[in-house]
């Protein structure tokens, strides 16, 4: 069944578990039918796959976990369009078709021996979860890990058990987990803010910069969130004297083919044209300065 030589051929994977995380997001756990393929399916945090529902189409979905054994591919899928709708309607035992992994992913080696500041907004936390898991699996290679997670409200919080555990117990693993929530009258979040006023605040994610001293010293910042968020987070980081190359971000675009051919994810200007799917989706802020329209 495998035809590796055709980059447009997807490989079937069975949904072994599909969990509702919020009203619009599900965590899809997949297992490739072909075990040999699964073995060779090596991916890095920040990479994505093209997920097909036959007869509906393909959509790029970022992998939201570090590679684990037994090999389960985890995708956090928000229901926003035709394909993701169809993915939501699929049940355990159904098939999805996968191509990938694509994109450059986060440079986990480059950022070794450094502190990490992960800033995620909404669904943007999904690829960052891969980074976090990877860093925790290789805990000795990374310094202090700080997570800023901005959500709209408690009900929209992804990976709730996992993150609440880190929020409360993260310090044991040298992880400082901060939470911001936008809905002013959110009861559950308010309780979290009462529980740890030093770690939780009402407002947008950049408000968390007021909660702790963020130092650029030997630190990499990694950002992922809705497009509007980048400028504001970058502004805070630059204010704190982060150099542009210390700031990584992963971008969303229409990555239809994933392999730099179909052209939809193009951005940039005469001197610097980028295909997000192939040159990214992870870029540094220096790339953004070089490439107009990136953020």
């Amino acid at each position: 069944m495998m035809r590796l030589e055709n980059v447009l051929s997807p490989t079937p994977a069975k949904i072994i578990k599909t969990e509702k995380m919020t009203d619009i997001e599900r965590l899809i756990n997949l297992e490739f039918l072909d075990k040999n393929f699964a073995k060779e399916f090596i991916y890095k945090p920040g990479q994505f796959v093209e997920v097909s529902v036959m007869g509906v189409g393909e959509a790029p979905i970022s992998i939201c976990a570090a590679r684990t054994n037994p090999d389960i591919l985890q995708l956090c899928v928000r229901k926003v369009g035709r394909v993701t709708n169809a993915i939501h309607n699929r049940k355990e035992g159904d098939l999805l078709w996968i191509r990938g992994p694509y994109g450059n992913g986060f440079p986990m080696e480059t950022i070794e021996r450094s502190h990490l500041l992960l800033v995620g907004g909404g669904l943007g936390i999904a690829p960052l979860r891969g980074v976090l898991q990877y860093a925790l699996q290789n805990r000795e290679k990374y310094g202090e890990i700080t997570v800023f997670y901005g959500i709209r409200c408690y009900n929209m919080m992804l990976f709730r058990d996992e993150f609440l555990h880190l929020f409360r117990e993260g310090d044991k693993q040298n992880v400082k987990f901060y939470l911001s929530y936008e809905a002013p009258d959110d009861k559950e979040c308010y309780e979290l803010a009462c529980e740890r006023s030093d770690r939780c605040t009402q407002g947008v994610v950049t408000k968390l910069f007021e909660k702790t001293e963020v130092s650029p010293k030997n630190t990499y910042a990694i950002i992922c969130g809705p497009p509007i968020m980048y400028k504001f987070v970058v502004r805070e980081l630059i204010k704190r004297e982060f150099r542009p190359e210390q700031i990584y971000m992963t971008l969303e675009r229409r990555m239809k083919c994933g392999i730099g051919k179909c052209g939809h994810c193009i951005l940039g200007n005469g001197t610097s044209i980028k295909y997000v799917c192939k040159d990214g989706p992870v870029f540094t802020y220096l790339d953004a300065l070089n490439t107009k329209g990136m953020i």
């Binding site: 928000r78 369009g81 497009p227 675009r253 052209g263 939809h264 951005l267």
Partner: peptide, 10 residues
């Protein structure tokens, strides 16, 4: 061409 699911057009 630049439209992503959810309605955002780059």
């Amino acid at each position: 061409h630049g439209l992503v699911a959810g309605g955002l057009n780059f």
